[in-house]
Design a protein around this nucleic acid. Structure first.
Lengths: 382, 382
DNA sequence: TTGGCTATTTGAATCGTTTCATCACGTGTG
DNA sequence: CACACGTGATGAAACGATTCAAATAGCCAA
């Protein structure tokens, strides 16, 4: 028994400092010491072999009643928590899932996270979530970090970018990857996606039906397939109504608030204003609303407004927004299950693509039947 | 060279299946095979010893130019990513931080997360975030999971509950814990907290100053110290104005939306309505707004409204909310730095408590100088 | 040529588990 | 009584890295 060099308080059990193990001094000298008891100490205390302790831990029924009880007592006495790191090294499974999200401040993603975490914990996996801020370089370094940590699989909502080399390399290294919300470009992978075309189409069809024309659309970054799909929905809705689309009314944003703000302002300053705006995600809509407010624009009187994502929910807006809601929790949950099935080998063969259905909820931001054109604007709130 | 039993495609390098290593068949038989190259393979390919490869990886300058280059070439050729799990086992450090949050859907917490993650990545740590949904049992099991994974430290925003036994045990096991936003009950720990009393006091002082009386307060769960502190701010503000507080106007919520909704409805149905409501967090405010809308209540005309947290931000509300804003990003960032300093031993001695200052932002939800009493309600929107 | 010294390089031991071949110990059978 | 057999229990090897004492190589001086 020696007093710990680092903390000066604890006693090291023989298993930590003993004739056969002079090396641990290395880590102690660094000033780290956590006193975690090991399986060897448990075995020693219970007077059994390590193999037996391991068998008790894993619920192997071949352990006799007497020994089992002694081992359990020792575990409790030492407050033993198995070292999952060592276990991972041996069995080559970490029971960790990586989750890479582009914008954690977009409420869409925490919802996905909850769904995924719920499922993961049910199956004993731990979810490691990281945020890329829509930057592909960060996505690269996060993926590298997760890979070094040997996560068993990765849930990925890609940052925009045409180069998927870093993703491809992860996949080729044999790490299962499931795409969430946004598919990786140029790689066929298991995915849980929204039917974005349909979402855009439903929404714009509604706008057209209630009488809007000259509908502007603020899209996501064209590099992102989901952005292009939502735009396609917009185009399809026009096509089926036998209406031409005006390219001037298609504006590219980047799914972040500021771009919504900027583009809305631009739109509102045009000589010919659109009668309605369809915004392709919720964050940009926050920016649009900000612009509306600053310019004293009111909906639905002055302009119709509809958007992807129900991030502000049913709350507090008056009039409320007409939205295309995505089943976010579901998306996370299904993604996680898909990934774990792939890891466990329950799923074989070709990549599976799950398409979830969006829900159009019509609220009062598009209520009017005969939208007014430009006029009737109150002065800006300064 | 053998074809892999699991995937049937890859060839196993000698280091994986060889005369001296018959055992890997174990894991292959399970159907897992990830082909990750190891330091041994790199060494073999470069014609050097494993020690040399290790030295190259860690940037040890004692490696000669020639060997260094050969090793680097081999690393690139094999797409070698060091196994951080094995490394962790040896050096007894995982470079992972746990982060335990009570409600990831409250935008307050993703903001904290961003701050913490930013700092963590700067110092090569990976942040593992988990959500407890305000349930103490989940907090327990998450802590156990993090402990088994041997995270180097934990950032904790506690779930409400009087029992901190599970937290104490983690601390006693020698794992550094830093409390964020909410302190653990009955344990002195490093913490980054808000000056909640001041936040409540500033806000209610403002309400009183502009003329509100009979101000109702919707608090958080009394089990939580921050909830009691905010309430204390309310009481202090009254005391300094020489006003009595009416216990009937103190209502206990649970920091979640539904409770705000429920309590606001209750308040609005009273024979004597308060003239203003001070809500102790942002999620509950969403509920309150919902109730207002359903009952056709308008602020500031019918009722003044002020709240902790700026979760809806400057956006979209008209009139906008008077809020006590918390420096969320900062909170996460400082918490992470504090934790890592403690881990690295840069910080010695007593627990450190950092108190951040809230900012009162007065907007139009409390604008009126002489609030109207009950009357003048428009009919509910159905 | 040899010895001494430094600068590199090596490789065995170790971290805390799991796994499985082997062993010990009764027990029942021929 | 000898033997086979089954049930538990054991413990050594292995996972992939780091570390450091020891070996080696290179170089210069004697």
């Amino acid at each position: 028994m020696f007093r710990c060099f680092a903390c000066g308080i604890c006693l090291h059990a023989p298993a930590i400092i003993s004739p056969t193990t002079p090396k641990p001094l290395q880590s102690l000298r660094r000033g780290r010491c956590s006193h975690m008891s090991t399986i060897v100490e448990v075995a020693k205390r219970a007077g059994v072999s390590v193999g037996t302790v391991s068998n008790v831990l894993s619920g192997n029924p071949s352990v006799g009643r007497e020994l089992r009880e002694r081992v359990e007592a020792a575990i409790r006495a030492l407050d033993y928590h198995p070292n999952e790191i060592a276990r991972s090294l041996k069995v080559k499974q970490t029971y960790m899932l990586g989750m890479v999200l582009p914008d954690i401040t977009n409420p869409f993603f925490p919802d996905i996270m909850r769904g995924a975490e719920e499922k993961a914990l049910q199956r004993r996996y731990l979810l490691v979530t990281a945020n890329t801020d829509e930057q592909i370089e960060r996505e690269q370094s996060i993926l590298a970090a997760l890979r070094s940590r040997r996560v068993d699989g990765i849930l990925l909502a890609c940052a925009p970018g045409k180069d998927s080399g870093h993703i491809r390399r992860v996949v080729e290294a044999g790490i299962p990857v499931v795409c969430l919300d946004r598919a990786a470009v140029g790689i066929k992978l298991d995915s849980v996606l929204l039917d974005n075309v349909r979402g855009g189409q439903d929404c714009v069809r509604h706008l057209l039906r209630v009488g809007y024309r000259n509908i502007a659309v603020i899209t996501g970054p064209h590099k992102l397939q989901i952005a292009r799909e939502r735009l396609r929905g917009y185009v399809e809705a026009h096509r089926e109504a036998h209406l031409d689309v005006n390219r001037e009314l298609i504006l590219e944003g980047d799914f972040r608030e500021e771009s919504g703000y900027r583009i809305a302002k631009e739109l509102l300053l045009r000589r010919v204003r659109p009668s309605a705006i369809f915004v392709c995600n919720g964050m940009m809509t926050l920016g649009v609303l900000q612009a509306f407010e600053e310019m004293g624009v009111h909906y639905p009187e002055d302009l119709g407004l509809a958007t992807f994502d129900d991030i502000v929910g049913d709350h507090s807006f008056y009039p409320r927004l007409t939205v295309v809601a995505q089943p976010t929790y579901e998306m996370g949950a299904q993604g996680a299950d898909l990934l774990m099935d792939r890891i466990d080998g329950k799923l074989k063969g070709k990549p599976l693509i799950v398409r979830l259905k969006p829900t159009l909820t019509v609220r009062s931001s598009t209520k009017t039947q005969n939208p007014v054109a430009v006029s009737s604007l109150r002065p800006a709130a300064l």
